[in-house]
Amino acid sequence: MEERFLLKQVQPAAFKAMLALEEYLAATDISPLHMEMIRVRASQLNGCAYCLDKHSQDALTAGETAQRLYLLPVWKESPQFSEAERIILTMVEEITHISKAGLTDDTYAKALAQFGQETTAQLIMAVVTINAWNRIGISSRRIPGQHH
């Protein structure tokens, strides 16, 4: 497998726009652990090896446990995840697989009750942003471990 291109070299304005989304996300109410959980789970679902590698390492650095990372693909069967995390993970799956049913009314209502409208909107933006990065990483064939 050979890397096709680096977005920051070929389309620096697009890369800058994506970084602006990251700056926005850094200022949200989403905890670093929940942010990395969103990024790891979406990257698993999308099959983006580069992002999965990067964000798994970032999650560990942020204090996530190896056990919870191992169990993330089977979170529904794992008691290690809180109710709030289950809502977030359901959002990740429904938004990432948008063509199935999208963000369902049930999940949206649970998110509003748990997080309120502002943070729910922030969580949606976090999922949208990592999905964009995943599509860039897969399309450009980013190679895991090469952080240039």
Results as ranks from 00 to 15, higher is better:
Met1Tyr: 10
Met1Lys: 10
Met1Arg: 10
Glu2Pro: 02
Glu2Trp: 03
Phe5Cys: 11
Phe5Glu: 10
Leu6Phe: 14
Leu6Cys: 01
Lys8Cys: 08
Lys8Ser: 13
Gln9Lys: 15
Gln11Ser: 15
Pro12His: 07
Ala14Thr: 14
Ala14Arg: 04
Ala14Gln: 12
Ala14Lys: 08
Phe15Glu: 10
Lys16Trp: 05
Ala17Arg: 04
Met18Pro: 00
Met18Cys: 01
Ala20Asp: 14
Glu22Trp: 05
Glu22Asn: 13
Glu23Met: 08
Tyr24Asn: 07
Leu25Gly: 06
Leu25Glu: 11
Ala26Thr: 09
Ala26Gln: 13
Ala26Tyr: 03
Ala26Gly: 14
Ala27Tyr: 00
Ala27Arg: 14
Asp29Gly: 15
Ile30Leu: 08
Ser31Cys: 05
Ser31Glu: 12
Pro32His: 06
His34Asn: 15
His34Ala: 10
Glu36Asn: 13
Met37Phe: 04
Ile38Leu: 05
Arg39Ala: 11
Val40Cys: 10
Ala42Gln: 02
Ala42Lys: 00
Leu45Gly: 03
Leu45Asp: 00
Asn46Val: 08
Gly47Cys: 08
Gly47Glu: 09
Cys48Val: 02
Ala49Cys: 07
Ala49Val: 03
Cys51Ser: 09
Leu52Trp: 08
Lys54Gln: 15
Lys54Cys: 11
His55Gly: 09
Ser56Met: 11
Ala59Cys: 06
Ala59Tyr: 09
Ala62Gln: 08
Ala62Asn: 09
Gly63His: 05
Glu64Asp: 13
Ala66Pro: 03
Gln67Asn: 05
Gln67Trp: 04
Gln67Pro: 00
Arg68Tyr: 05
Leu69Pro: 05
Tyr70Val: 14
Val74Cys: 12
Val74Arg: 14
Trp75Cys: 04
Lys76Gly: 05
Lys76Tyr: 01
Pro79Gln: 01
Pro79Ala: 02
Pro79Leu: 00
Gln80Asn: 11
Phe81Pro: 04
Phe81Ala: 04
Ser82Gly: 08
Ser82Ile: 09
Ser82His: 08
Ala84His: 08
Ala84Gly: 13
Thr90Pro: 00
Thr90Asp: 07
Glu93Pro: 02
Glu93Ala: 09
Thr96Asn: 13
His97Met: 12
Ser99Cys: 07
Ser99His: 13
Ser99Glu: 13
Ala101Gln: 15
Gly102Phe: 06
Gly102Gln: 09
Leu103Glu: 03
Leu103Met: 10
Thr104Glu: 07
Asp105Ile: 09
Asp106Phe: 12
Thr107Gln: 01
Tyr108Pro: 01
Ala111Met: 04
Ala111Cys: 07
Leu112Cys: 06
Ala113Arg: 10
Gln114Trp: 00
Phe115Cys: 10
Thr120Ile: 03
Thr120Pro: 07
Ala121Met: 11
Gln122Phe: 03
Gln122Thr: 01
Leu123Arg: 07
Ile124Lys: 03
Met125Thr: 12
Ala126Gln: 06
Ala126Trp: 06
Val127Leu: 03
Val127Gly: 02
Thr129Tyr: 10
Thr129Trp: 09
Thr129Met: 11
Ile130Asn: 08
Asn131Arg: 06
Asn131Val: 04
Arg135Trp: 06
Ile136Leu: 14
Gly137His: 11
Ser140Ile: 06
Arg141Gln: 14
Arg141Phe: 11
Arg142Glu: 11
Arg142Tyr: 15
Pro144Lys: 09
Pro144Ala: 13
Gln146Gly: 00
His148Asn: 15
His148Gln: 14
His148Phe: 11
His148Asp: 14
